[in-house]
Structure formats: structure tokens, C-alpha cells
């Protein structure tokens, strides 16, 4: 019994009309910056065109372009990772001396004022969270957004960012601790 495979073809003249928005949306939800996402989409189309001769027709055109974009996004994350010397607001909350792992006294969580009122959904609340996320080191912000806001599976994030699950949880923990403090200072007790 012979199986027949539909051989896919590439049609670069239609790429922008057919896939630009899909790829842009895909990129912007991962890098959270429309200029960066735009650049990544452009690079994807260029790379696609340059490697078109290697296209074997096994995958659909869009799947093939998304695979290229994924690699571009990973390269982008790696570039961020190796961005040494960049000023990052990374605050430590736990003692690393005699009382290793215990809360640093002046950074313990404080009681929140008018908590119920402050929990009501509002534009100000959303914009304060956004500002707090933006204050995180970029890698923390990316992992936090993917896991918490875009609700990706742990496995998928690890695969895309080339990190281990334990690495992911350390980042999520640090990000959430820092965000809690930021929201405490700028929203709940402000």
C-alpha cells in the first residue's frame, strides 16, 4: 500500500499577505515588544527566502516559517542572556549568611491596606502590573510572561528558551517575589 504525501510548495510573493500578521502576533506575545517582533518577522522572511532551496515540501509553508521564527526568537533570548553589564534591578529577599534562606528582615512582606478595594479590576491596576513587570530583569520578564500571562506549558517554555525546568522555577520564584514587593510599594500600600 503506497502512501501519498502532499508536497508543499513555497510562494514568497504571498508570504506577507498570508503570514505576516500570524508571525507578528506569535513573536510579539513572546518578546513583548512590537519593534523587536517586527524585526524578527522581517528576519524570518529573509532567512526563509535565503534557505528556500532547502525546503523539502514536507511541512506546510506556515509551519516551516514558524520554525524559522522560533529559532530567531531563541537567538534573541540568548542575546539578552549574554547582555552582560546591563543594569538590572534584581533584589535579594533571602539571607545568604548565617540565616541562609530566611527572609531579610527589612524585606519581609508587609500587610496590605484596603486590600479588597485594591483588588478591583481597573486600568490603573493593569498598568501598575505592567510597570512592575517591565522593572524585572529581561530574562525574568520573558519567562514570567510566558508562564503566567500567556499561560504556556512549562515544557514548551523550557524547549523554546533552552532552559531546564528547575531553572524556570528559580526564575519564576525570583520574578514573583520581586513583583509582589513592587506591587506592595506601588499599588497595595501606595
Amino acid at each position: 500500500m503506497s502512501e501519498t504525501f502532499k508536497k508543499h510548495t513555497l510562494n514568497p510573493d504571498k508570504w506577507i499577505d498570508n503570514y505576516a500578521d500570524y508571525l507578528f502576533n506569535y513573536a510579539v506575545t513572546r518578546v513583548n515588544n512590537s519593534d523587536t517582533a517586527k524585526d524578527l518577522v522581517q528576519e524570518t522572511f529573509f532567512a526563509g527566502l535565503k534557505s528556500a532551496k532547502n525546503f523539502e515540501g514536507k511541512a506546510a509553508e506556515r509551519t516551516w516559517l514558524v520554525a524559522i521564527l522560533k529559532r530567531k526568537i531563541i537567538d534573541h533570548y540568548r542575546k539578552i542572556n549574554s547582555n552582560k553589564g546591563k543594569a538590572e534591578v534584581r533584589m535579594s529577599f533571602y539571607d545568604d549568611g548565617d540565616k541562609e534562606g530566611n527572609w531579610i528582615e527589612e524585606r519581609v512582606p508587609q500587610s496590605w491596606q484596603n486590600e479588597a478595594d485594591k483588588m478591583i479590576e481597573s486600568t490603573e491596576l493593569k498598568s501598575t502590573i505592567e510597570q512592575c513587570i517591565d522593572k524585572l530583569p529581561e530574562k525574568y520578564a520573558i519567562v514570567f510572561r510566558m508562564k503566567t500571562i500567556q499561560e504556556f506549558e512549562t515544557e514548551e517554555i523550557c524547549k523554546e528558551l533552552n532552559i531546564t525546568a528547575s531553572n524556570l522555577w528559580v526564575i519564576i520564584h525570583r520574578a514573583r517575589t520581586q513583583l509582589r514587593k513592587c506591587m506592595e510599594d506601588n499599588w497595595f500600600n501606595n
Binding site: M119, I129, I149, M183
Partner: peptide, 10 residues
């Protein structure tokens, strides 16, 4: 509570 806030955002 922070999780509730993040869910709103999501």
C-alpha cells in the same frame, strides 16, 4: 491574590 491579578492581566 497576586495570582488573581495576573489572571486578570492574562
Amino acid at each position: 491574590k497576586m495570582t488573581q491579578v495576573y489572571k486578570m492581566k492574562a
